[in-house]
């Protein structure tokens, strides 16, 4: 129910859904401008580049997951509500994943082609992004919960959260690179799945604890 509320709120502000996509497109355009238009070079960096951009756009949006609800006090009511905070937090983060991570994963083939990624790896890219950004949303939620009460949380959250994103980045790009070179990407996707289940189990707990602290402070 909370999930539906979050999603309908998001749909009411289409600009905010569009922002991460536009960000994604702009940064993709930066790479050829910075590195040079040679297609082999671009193809070589494409898996890493797309993953790093996905990382950044997930990071930039996760700052605002709880902020508006914290400001208008509805988050405080949520803490008092009878349903377990674990599930409500999961709903918030699930909504965040759907409007940023999943959406990015679905449009990523376009950017993959722009960066000259071999077509054989596009499917793996979409699956790995869909799995990986879910982990990123869950981990980013912890940082968002800890910094939501602070006036300038924006820069701080990246300092807290980016180091924790590293395993996802490593295995996400490894999956795509494996697909590019023709070897099976399954094991890496399985590892991403394992991280996702760990993140689902523990992430919302830490996020819930973080929210309690931020509200108390």
């Amino acid at each position: 129910m909370l999930l539906r509320r979050q999603l309908s709120l998001a749909i009411r502000r289409p600009i905010e859904i569009g922002n991460p996509l536009v960000f994604f497109a702009i940064v993709v355009a930066m790479f050829p401008l910075g590195i040079g238009p040679a297609s082999e070079q671009l193809a070589m960096i494409a898996p890493g580049a797309i993953w790093i951009i996905a990382l950044l756009s997930s990071l930039l949006t996760s700052d605002s997951v709880f902020r508006s609800d914290f400001d208008d006090g509805s988050l405080e009511q949520l803490l008092l509500a009878p349903q377990p905070l674990y599930l409500s937090v999961l709903a918030y983060l699930c909504a965040h994943w759907i409007v940023t991570g999943l959406l990015l994963a679905l449009v990523s083939p376009v950017f993959a082609l722009m960066l000259n990624l071999p077509a054989a790896a596009v499917g793996t890219l979409v699956v790995s992004l869909a799995l990986g950004t879910a982990v990123l949303s869950l981990v980013g939620g912890i940082g968002a919960a800890l910094t939501v009460g602070l006036k300038r949380g924006g820069m701080l959250i990246s300092l807290l959260i980016l180091p924790l994103y590293i395993p996802v980045l490593i295995f996400g790009t490894a999956a795509v690179q494996a697909a590019v070179s023709g070897s099976p990407a399954g094991p890496f996707l399985a590892l991403l799945g394992a991280m996702l289940s760990l993140a689902i189990a523990l992430g919302p707990l830490a996020t819930a604890a973080g929210l309690r602290i931020s509200i108390d402070a």
């Binding site: 800890l146 180091p163 830490a206 602290i213 931020s214 402070a217």
Partner: peptide
């Protein structure tokens, strides 16, 4: 550095301690 920065960002030092505790456990 993340733990140090988070501690410094809070004005309420009790909340800072608890937030850092969670962050270091996650770490």
């Amino acid at each position: 550095l993340g733990v140090v920065a988070l501690y410094e960002a809070f004005d309420n030092k009790e909340a800072a301690g608890r937030a850092c505790a969670i962050l270091s456990l996650v770490g």
